[in-house]
Design a binder for these strands. Structure first.
Lengths: 188, 188
DNA sequence: AAATTATCGCACTGATCGCTGCGTTAGTGG
DNA sequence: CCACTAACGCAGCGATCAGTGCGATAATTT
């Protein structure tokens, strides 16, 4: 409603505040328990007045959602290795490395706990990237894979290990996972 | 430290308070956002004085961990269907049904967000059950499977769907997952 | 049955959170 | 360069949270 009347102002200061707040959230989650992640605490760490946070984000849930969406959305274009196998190996290894970082993991946990939509914000972009890889294979003349099924078998175990087990998966493990998955496709 | 001098007292009242508090946590998580899950709020819902919660649990993180451990630990013995396939199908379908419940999901999200050990508390017992099923197959003379790998392929996609996607998996989908997994084992 | 002690309820205090007007600063368009 | 307005800082106000002695209750032991 009235989307033309609200002039968004992404200029210097707003962007700077936003970046400082995002960094503060990441830092606090990295060093302390999620319990202490309150708006005044984030404001103090970011060197920003608490009022700003109450106005722009309103609650820690919305703030976390914003941070997570921003953090887990990269314009990264997966390099074309020429084959589906190569593309998936490289991509999933990168994802595994990213998820293995304790700080990243802390952000994911907090975001998941902030609400029902929290989990989606963490993997939304990964789904998009996986879809792009599969689409590329299809354009190459290869088989057409279901994105959902591929996500279940590739992202599923990866994120499961990260969130539900004491130690996350490695990049090598991710590559093995891709090989196993593709082998399954050939035999079925 | 002096573990023999502190007599644990699981008698009537303590157990009653504990049950009321656990129920209150589940109720509040089911109907409200996780943000409002504070110790006084839980106490009010449970009809218990807040002081009791501060003394026995100390923080919402520890309380959630206790509730989750209790909730996701059932002495349920998986019925012996005679085959690994049957055992797994039945068991994973039950797990899927359990995880598909919105209230259960809310408890899981909150527990994950409460700390690094939160996720483990949710699946610890599932791992134990899976191990028991695999051990039974081995005793039957069947193949010896790695529990970790089986968990990756079975629990992984299931919990991934539940936590990271808008709608969780169904029992039928879980059964299909078991079939696919066992087929993979035969061809490798 | 009486003594013991773990556990809970009550009253109370400081600290902090969530939030709201109001003035000021700094990007944006003419 | 100037007007305009979105965004931020400041001061301050309830409300609630986290935590602490102290007495009462009830489970356990002797």
């Amino acid at each position: 409603m009235a989307e033309s009347s609200t002039h968004v102002r992404p200029g210097g200061r707003s962007a700077k505040v936003r970046a400082a707040v995002h960094r503060a959230v990441a830092e606090l989650l990295a060093e302390e328990e999620a319990e202490t992640l309150t708006l005044p605490a984030v404001a103090a760490r970011a060197g920003v007045h608490p009022t700003t946070l109450y106005r722009r984000w309103g609650s820690t849930a919305q703030l976390l959602n914003d941070v997570a969406t921003s953090r887990f959305t990269d314009d990264l274009v997966v390099p074309d290795s020429g084959s589906l196998d190569g593309d998936l190996q490289r991509w999933l290894a990168d994802v595994a490395t990213d998820v293995a970082d304790p700080d990243t993991l802390a952000l994911m946990r907090a975001t998941i706990g902030s609400g029902p939509a929290g989990g989606c914000a963490c993997v939304e972009d990964r789904h998009r990237q996986l879809g792009a890889i599969i689409q590329r294979e299809q354009d190459r003349g290869g088989q057409a894979l279901a994105v959902e099924t591929a996500a279940d078998f590739l992202l599923g175990p990866l994120y499961y290990r990260a969130v539900f087990t004491p130690e996350p998966a490695s990049a090598d493990w991710a590559r093995t996972l891709v090989s196993t998955y593709l082998a399954t496709l050939r035999t079925s």
